[in-house]
Amino acid sequence: MSKVVEFRWHGRGGQGAKTASILLADAAFNTGKYVQGFPEYGPERMGAPIAAFNRISDQEIRVHSNVYEPNFVVVVDETLLDCVDVTAGIKADGAIIVNTPKSPDEIRPKLDGYTGKICTIDATGIAVDCIKRPIPNTPMLAAAVKVSGVMSDDEFISDMEGSLKHKFATKPQVIALNMDAIKRAIGEVKGL
């Protein structure tokens, strides 16, 4: 059981945190892992804080509760740092990954005495540059994979091409743009 790697995603409705958790589950599944990917369903409205979760393991996963002591926390929207206790339960050897143009040192004062590892990535900036829309979930996913090391960069990139082809079967024009965003994000994580 100790081999399970757990993620908690914090985002706002419409930013794709749920989709990111499902894509992470997909990618890890394709490397042969046991996976869970699931959101916490609440009032589903644009902009409301939402959470989503992943478990990734070499063994069958039986636990069906939410994730309370994550190895990794992914914050898709920086403004959530002001209203959600994003570091709650995070493991001492884990990390938090925040979508922001700021550096980890600039973010730390906002995390109420959290002493663990902080990584940042300007996922929205990358999304605007590459995808032409401020939807940060695929670059955030790339950052989550990079920081957690649940799979190698190469495995992840080749797998994402397949997943995005499946997911965006009706919108093939966005696949290459998302792949650009993913590749850039892998190289631009701060605080590794």
């Binding site: 499902i22 589950a25 997909d26 599944f29 046991y34 996976v35 869970q36 990917g37 699931f38 959101p39 369903y41 069958e60 996963i61 069906h64």
Partner: peptide, 9 residues
């Protein structure tokens, strides 16, 4: 939700 919406192996 727990089973209906959770992606798992």
């Amino acid at each position: 939700f727990i089973t209906s919406h959770k992606v798992e192996n």
